[in-house]
Amino acid sequence: MDPVKTVAPSLAGVLDRNLFWMVWNSVLAWIPVALALLVFRGARADERRLPMSPMWWGGLGLLLLFLPNAPYVVTDLVHLRDDIRAAGNGPVVTTILPVYAGFIASGFVAYYLVLAELGRFLTARGLGAWRTPATITIHMLCAIGVFLGRWVRLNSWEPVVQPRGTFDRMLLALSWNWAPVLITAVFVATALGHFVTRAVVETGMESLRRGARLVRTRRFA
Rank of each mutant, 00 (worst) to 15 (best):
R153P: 09
T75M: 01
W21G: 00
V73Y: 00
N18E: 05
A199R: 13
Y72K: 14
T6M: 07
A116V: 02
L113P: 04
P180R: 05
V215K: 14
R164I: 10
A36Q: 04
Y100D: 00
V39T: 05
L214F: 04
I104R: 04
V27S: 02
M170Q: 03
T94F: 02
N89E: 07
V201N: 01
L148T: 07
F195E: 07
V78L: 08
V39N: 03
N89G: 09
Y72S: 04
V99C: 04
A105N: 09
W56F: 09
A124V: 03
T197M: 08
A105F: 10
A124H: 04
A36G: 13
E158I: 04
A12Y: 13
G102P: 08
D2W: 12
A199F: 09
L60Q: 03
R17E: 03
R219W: 05
D2M: 05
F108H: 13
M140Y: 15
V23A: 11
A101F: 14
D168V: 14
W157L: 11
S156H: 11
R216T: 05
V201W: 02
L62H: 05
I104W: 00
S207K: 15
P68E: 11
R218I: 06
A36H: 13
V93M: 11
R131A: 15
F187A: 12
H79T: 03
Y112Q: 09
S53K: 08
R48N: 12
A173V: 10
A86T: 00
P54W: 08
I138T: 15
E206V: 05
R81I: 05
G102F: 07
L208A: 15
A34P: 08
